[in-house]
Computed example of a mutant assay.
Amino acid sequence: MPTSIRQVYVPSFGDESHITIMTAPIADPAPKEVQIKVLCSGFGGSDIAMRLGKYPGQKDAPLVPGYCLVGRIHSLGTSCSKFKKGDLVAAMTKYDAHAELTNFDEKYVVPCPEGIDLEQAVAMVLDWSTAYGMTYRGAKIQKGSRVFIHGLSGAVGFAAFTFCKMQGAEVYGTASESKHERLKELGVTLPFVYTNKDWITAMQNLGGAHVVFDALGFDSYDESWRILAPKEGGHLVGLGGNLDVLNGNEPRNQYVGIAKLLAKGMVPFCPHKTSFYYIDKDQKTFEPEMKELFQLSLQGKIHAPIKKRLTLEEVPQAHKEFHKYRDIGSVVVKVAEDDGTGDLHATEFK
């Protein structure tokens, strides 16, 4: 029987007026789906790009945004056997996490350990799993490597900084000047300002970077290429491409920029290589790495700074203000209180 839930809703693509909170029915889960009571979900540039209809490969409107979640199993489809009602779980849904309940294919749902901080857990699902995969697998950071990260104050950027330091790298990077003191408090020794370009000369004088993580994209790829280590060769890793969103501008199409990035690494006899890193729930590494991240969080070995805490009702306003947030780390949406049961209570969101 369909259940009425509150959800964020994008009826058509456009500016911030094209997003609202609405009550709508959700169908029972399909045979291979579980229905999850959402406790926390993530919020980021991908949600804004989807509202504008500019996220690569996204589906058409109408849609409910929300890329990742932590919640409890509310009900199960007839063919499900991996979980039981009330189990704490996490999922990278891409859509539908900004809602009280969501249906999702059971095979992509990851068990979440009891006792973990829910805000930390949801930060792991997309932001920190992206950073983990690209630093440990994508770039294979080595002890003593010089690593440069654009967007150190972002959720993925700070996570990448954390993992590179754990692997013994020397880490440099860019962030807006207003965030430098906070970054220094968190262990960054020398952040640069992207716009003044001092970082280019500084890194060249150091002998260049062995790895550059560039989440800005477009023109920034050419600048990042200039700071790769000329003698040893370097690896330029593109990801994200949220520069326009972060600046409050409408995002450009990323495909041309990514194609140019990859072409740079295909020149014969070039000492450098390029790649574009993305994370996908179908990757065989996704669930094992999620479980590893949950354990690292429980053990206190990693900690995600939380930039902003929202309620579901505040998500439309966050679409207007996201580029103005001045703190560091992930943005999380608290959707419901956790009573350990997975039941949906009529008093929630009132």
Rank of each mutant, 00 (worst) to 15 (best):
F104N: 03
Y132V: 00
Y9Q: 06
L63M: 12
L88V: 04
D222N: 13
H180F: 11
D280R: 01
Y172G: 10
G207H: 05
V267F: 09
F158C: 10
Q167F: 04
D96P: 00
A304T: 06
P25M: 09
P288V: 03
K273L: 07
Q120S: 03
V156C: 05
G157N: 11
P31E: 08
G342E: 05
C80H: 02
F43Q: 07
M124F: 12
D282E: 12
K273S: 15
H272A: 11
G207A: 11
F213H: 12
T162L: 04
G71C: 11
K107H: 06
D222S: 13
S145R: 09
L344I: 08
I116Q: 05
K37N: 07
H323D: 02
I306E: 02
M92K: 03
M203N: 08
G53R: 07
F192L: 01
F83C: 10
A304G: 05
Q254R: 15
A27S: 13
T195W: 04
I227Q: 08
I328Q: 08
G187Y: 01
E223I: 00
F148T: 08
N205F: 05
H319W: 00
F161G: 06
V122E: 05
P11A: 12
Y255N: 14
P251V: 09
K165R: 15
S46K: 01
H180E: 12
M166C: 05
P29A: 12
D244S: 14
P230D: 04
T341S: 15
T93W: 00
I26E: 10
R51V: 07
Y278S: 11
G44W: 01
G207W: 00
S178V: 13
P113C: 04
N253D: 14
I36E: 07
D15M: 08
V122W: 07
D117E: 13
Q299M: 07
M166A: 12
Y172H: 10
Q120E: 09
G238P: 15
I227R: 05
K143I: 04
F104S: 07
Y67F: 13
L76H: 02
K32Y: 03
A123N: 09
G57W: 01
G265T: 13
C270Q: 09
T189M: 11
S275M: 04
P65Q: 08
D28N: 15
P65F: 00
V122Q: 03
D127I: 03
T135F: 13
V211C: 14
K143Y: 00
W128F: 12
I19Y: 00
H18Y: 01
P62F: 03
K84R: 11
E100G: 11
S275Y: 09
G233L: 06
I328A: 15
K197M: 03
